[in-house]
Design a protein around this nucleic acid. Structure first.
Lengths: 226, 226
DNA sequence: GCGATCGTGAACGCAACGTGAACAGGGCCG
DNA sequence: CGGCCCTGTTCACGTTGCGTTCACGATCGC
């Protein structure tokens, strides 16, 4: 994980303690100049800027970050309750803020949520395994870049399997969890759908779905000892 | 400005007072059902959900909103400090949160920042996709330069679809979000409107609206990247 | 070699979808 | 007030996709 940029240097001891306890790596930064020179190769994982007495320095750093001089996102502020007015007309300079003094669990929650947003917030909901990609929003699937034309049940079955890679499912389990009801006569129905899935996956990727004799089927993670 | 959805009904008096003083219009909503039936024609401006004693109801409402049943964004939580744990693994259910009891100016700042974020991201009066252009101000539509003569519902349906290109919507979702109410008998109504839309789009562009069998309809092609 | 298990091909039957037309309500104009 | 037109909704019918089933051959374990 990339380190967090923390301003000022040194940061308040409560903040340093919380970051250490939370398992974050971080670097204190006094001003913009040192921030640039101290930038890791793979960039910063985010920034926490304390808006305290010298708020000018803090805002200047935020402006530099947002201008693009520093590869930092997201940006969280720590700000005293009596300085809330300073947030006015500065919406573009921060992603979230937390009142100082802060509740440790609140700050933790905000950090977690910010990282979550930066990571998977805007991206479409995908299920991925090796070359296989399932887009849950568009009901489309692709393997190694080429789209697959799956029917509804094929898609649902593949989705369920890909969501639990490596796990073996009996036909009864698949029927109850993919089809959604108890089934008596035709457990062979699963076989047929598995076959069609393998056919559409292509000879190259057909082995993604492995047969576990006398048990059921497993998706992925069975590399034949490779 | 579109009204804010506020849960529960009635909301805490401090919250109501702050919203009134801040000049916001808002509606208290007890549960998902009334939220759907009370949805204004032009949607909600956002939501404030209090996570209190009956947190199940609150989370259920959030889930309904995020599932797409309700056209609400952004979503802000009010949550007690002793319930912060509940935020865990629920990142996708909210955009921001504020500790309860809250500092009035903090809540104001968070609301302002949320609206700013929502506004700066998507503010166009035009909806465009490939050759299709929708002018939201004049209620006019055009494809490849030639204007389309759409009825009200056709326009609303096309607008909604074009605003979420690539995403698949069930008929029920379309009925609740375009028509704006729960529907019992005729999900086929959607089919007919889709057909008329396709007809007016012309044979050349009819494929803009794709049928996803057993699921619903999708506008445009999928988006594998962001 | 025998039974159990699974793959394969083809056929059936249903439900989801497209299509055309008719119905009902509302606004407009004469 | 009574026509007409526009529009949203519903119904009935035809078609196709596809989920399911069956029969048979292949394969594995014992």
């Amino acid at each position: 994980m990339e380190p967090l940029l923390v301003h000022p240097d040194p940061p308040p001891p409560e903040l340093a303690r919380l970051l250490d306890l939370g398992g974050h790596t971080w670097k204190p930064v006094g001003d913009e100049r040192t921030a640039i020179s101290e930038t890791p190769d793979d960039g910063w994982g985010g920034a926490i800027v304390v808006v305290g007495e010298q708020s000018d320095a803090a805002w200047g750093l935020c402006r530099a970050i947002r201008k693009g001089d520093l590869p930092v996102e997201p940006l969280l502020l720590l700000i005293g309750g009596n300085r809330l007015d300073e947030l006015d007309l500065r919406d573009e300079l921060y992603d979230d803020f937390c009142l100082d003094p802060f509740h440790p669990r609140e700050l933790e929650a905000r950090l977690r949520h910010l990282f979550w947003r930066a990571g998977s917030g805007t991206a479409p909901e995908l299920v991925e395994y090796a070359d296989l990609v399932l887009n849950l929003e568009t009901y489309q699937a692709a393997i190694a870049g080429t789209p697959l034309d799956l029917t509804y049940m094929e898609y649902e079955l593949l989705k369920f399997l890909a969501q639990h890679p490596g796990k073996v499912f009996t036909r009864e389990t698949l029927l109850s969890r993919v089809w959604g009801y108890e089934y008596y006569g035709g457990a062979r129905t699963v076989d047929v759908h598995i076959r069609r899935l393998r056919a559409k996956l292509g000879e190259e990727h057909a082995s993604l779905i492995a047969t576990v004799r006398s048990v059921g089927y497993r998706f992925g993670q069975s590399r034949w000892g490779v």
